[in-house]
Amino acid sequence: MTEVRTDRTLSREGQAPSRPGAPAGEVRGPKWTKMAKRDALAAYGFLGPWILGLLAITAFPILASLYLSFTNYSAGGTPDWIGLGNYQRMLEDPRFWKSLQVTATYVLVSVPVLLGFALLLAVALNTGLRLMPLYRSAYYLPSLLGGSVALAVLWRRLFAQEGLVNDVLGWIGVVGPAWLSDPALALIPLMVLNVTTFGAPMVIFLAALRQVPQELYDAAAVDGAGAPRKFWSITLPQISPVVLFNAVITLIGAFQAFTSAYIVSGGTGGPVDSTLFYTLYLYQTGFNYFDFGYASALAWVLLVIIAAVTASTFIGSRRFVFYGGDSR
């Protein structure tokens, strides 16, 4: 293994026409090789701690969880190999399906709303408002707090039957429902909480909006295009790669949502599993019920789902995303 690395480094070094510090016209010789070797050694020496970390803290647990997903392992004794048993069990597990349904609803509703909201604000902020840095910081703030325990606790208070949300509804004559107790509504506060984390995508949208060439708008204006027309025909196609980027990042984040449901429901995913996020079910299975084999299988299925959704987003995006230089 070491040999291969050194050879590769050497050949690359050998091809380099000139190197800083090397006397001009020096011919490649044994000294070169020695120095190159030492360079490579130093590089891998510095990389070493990181590589060890990657192998021990990331790669090994990932592979171990793949192995455990084919076993019956309850955090004691040795894992029993059961083949696809855990994966078959999912098919008949009502809570698995329920958690998938809850997560899918959460993703399908909150991600588009979040992206739309972030884009809307970015467009508004891009119109040259005064005190823009202040607004930008203020709108970004919830993104920093969005996944935090404190905000989830606050949410519990806001959406209580006698909380602020229902007070505001009361002003317009609406009797507020029991947001947190009614299984039909309990997911809504969590979706709203997710939407408040629009800050990061908003800032990215804003950066992209600034890159759209002004002359395109000028040309459109000459042709008599109004604001909506400019938005649909210039702004959106021009920033479409960034829309895709934000969509993918937000999608993955939404699939992995955990803290809000854990805190708001007290770790249960209640009432009656109405906020049982997939990750929460996975967590309960492993850390409450010691079913680490099944929990590992659940984790791998989530990985496959996220990979598939991301891939299909990319494939589907080909028709909509405009990269500079395309003929479209």
Binding site: A42, Y44, G45, G48, P49, L52, A56
Partner: peptide
């Protein structure tokens, strides 16, 4: 001088690796 620096760099890299290994053991 150049060589000394290289030696020092290599030694530092080796030390970093050793320290990590020691911390993990």
């Amino acid at each position: 001088m150049q060589l000394l620096t290289r030696r020092a760099v290599t030694a530092a890299a080796a030390a970093a690796l050793l320290l990590t290994a020691a911390a993990c053991s």
